[in-house]
Amino acid sequence: MKTRTKERKGNAELSKHKEAVTLGNVIANQEIHIELNGNREALVDGCKGIVEYNDSTVRLNTAAGQIRFSGRSLQIACMTEDSMILRGYILGLEYCS
C-alpha cells in the first residue's frame, strides 16, 4: 500500500519537473506555445516569422518547424518579434515537416 503511494508521489513530481522544463523551453524561446480560445483566437508565442499569409491560411515558422493555421477570414490582430494573435474562424492546426 505504502509502495503504491510513494510511486504516485514520484510520478507527480516527475510530471511537475517535466512541465517546468517544458515551460522553461518556452521561456527560452526554444519551443512554441499556442493558446487557443475556442476556434476564434489563437495566441502564438515563440514563432520566428510568417511564411505564408492569406485569408484562409497562415503558416508560421517556429524553432521546431512550421505550423499552419487554416480557416476563414484569418486576421493577424497583433504581431511582435516572436508572438502574434491570430483571429478568425480557425478550422485546423497542422504541424508541417
Binding site: 516569422g49 499569409y53 485569408d55 486576421q75 493577424i76 490582430a77 504581431m79 518579434e81 502574434m84
Partner: peptide, 20 residues
C-alpha cells in the same frame, strides 16, 4: 509581403489588425 511583415515584427514596429 510576408517577409515585409516579418521585418517589421523583428524591428519592433507594431503591426495590428492585419487583414489579407
Amino acid at each position: 509581403a510576408e517577409r515585409f511583415l516579418n521585418l517589421l515584427g523583428r524591428n519592433g514596429i507594431p503591426v495590428f489588425y492585419t487583414q489579407w
